[in-house]
Design a binder for these strands. Structure first.
Lengths: 197, 197
DNA sequence: TTCAGATGTATCAGCTCGATACATCGCTCA
DNA sequence: TGAGCGATGTATCGAGCTGATACATCTGAA
């Protein structure tokens, strides 16, 4: 906590370093590739974050392999410590309201393969209800406005709402898939496919 | 420039106050209704912005109407000055790269009814090429990645790209409409519909 | 009457972005 | 050879925004 580190960035960095050790520059590229259109991190957030994680003992500098030692090392390659792995597990397990914020959701989603089915469902459903709530607010605010809005503003509203509706449908599909899988593995564990759930 | 004021917020505030004088609380509600799903401003940015605009003489406190004078005024209603109107025109006329940033585009769009057709086209086309460029980068970065990504990450990429593709199509429609209107008014001005432009 | 919730102004810590600085490496073109 | 250039690489800073919070008033309902 000594140094700036926002939780979501921490997850992104620890999750990436868990897969393989990286140095800052490459970490940024990897993360931005991973997140695609959703998000792009800047050095101004990554380097302070790495410094903070190092400071807290969650990551350490990796020793360069012997055959590179001769040259001055310019790269600083980081890898997770045991505490770092623990912390990552913690971040992957807990899913609070921040997990379905716009900025956090993509990160959590990108590391879904490491998280429990139950947590995945919680995050997906949390995001869905967050979006639906927001749409509801916008719609009622829009309906309450007395003056009539010009066509450009209305078009903006329409497009915005439609985009979010599409995301909700996408979330629904994902949730259904997750549920179907959960049910399947549940009934496999039970060894007897009863009709009652 | 004395106080914090980011250009896009300045446009949003001046544009709103141009239509009718408002106090901070109401300004925020109006702006957030106007922008719908696109953006929401916080007090932490609005009040400093109002202070800055006041400081630079672009807005002034409006005298309360006589029939309210008796009670202590708690509201501080602001309205544009002549310099404020000038500045607003300036902001509406100029369209640079910042106009097609994610955070700015919605604001510019929401005030399109006050801007020239030529500027509207510049902003729409600028945003389109910005999005296309970004998609191109993501796609090549994705193609260059050697390791294969898990299904969640791929799904995230797919959804992200699809959303942006949809926005590009939306922009195309708007651009076509704008162009058609521009051509129409152009030929009306010419009074003779020649084939060569 | 009291209390909750909307209205209203204002600030602050923490965090992020975009720009920038600086240095090295490998490549190409002359 | 070496000049130039773009990618690689680490790092910092100012400016600005969010979310939380504090505090005060007004209104209507219980």
């Amino acid at each position: 906590m000594t140094v700036s580190r926002s939780g979501v960035l921490e997850l992104a960095v620890l999750g990436s370093l868990h897969e393989n050790p990286l140095h800052g520059y490459e970490l940024r590229k990897r993360l931005n590739t991973l997140l695609g259109m959703f998000r792009a991190f800047s050095y101004g957030s990554l380097y302070p974050c790495l410094k903070g994680l190092l400071n807290d003992g969650l990551i350490v500098e990796e020793e360069p392999p012997d055959d590179v030692v001769l040259g001055r090392r310019s790269k600083i390659v980081y890898k997770l410590t045991a505490e770092g792995k623990e912390r990552l597990q913690e971040l992957l397990t807990q899913a609070g309201p921040s997990s379905w914020e716009d900025e956090s959701f993509g990160i959590h989603f990108a590391f879904f393969r490491h998280t429990e089915a139950e947590v995945r469902l919680r995050i997906l459903e949390g995001r869905r209800s967050r979006l639906e709530e927001r749409m509801e607010n916008v719609r009622t605010a829009l309906a309450r406005t007395r003056e009539r809005l010009d066509s450009y503003t209305l078009e903006l509203q329409r497009h915005g709402l439609e985009s979010v509706e599409r995301e909700v449908r996408w979330l629904n599909e994902l949730i259904n898939t997750e549920r179907a899988q959960a049910d399947k593995s549940q009934s496999e564990r039970d060894k007897r496919p009863d009709s009652d759930e």
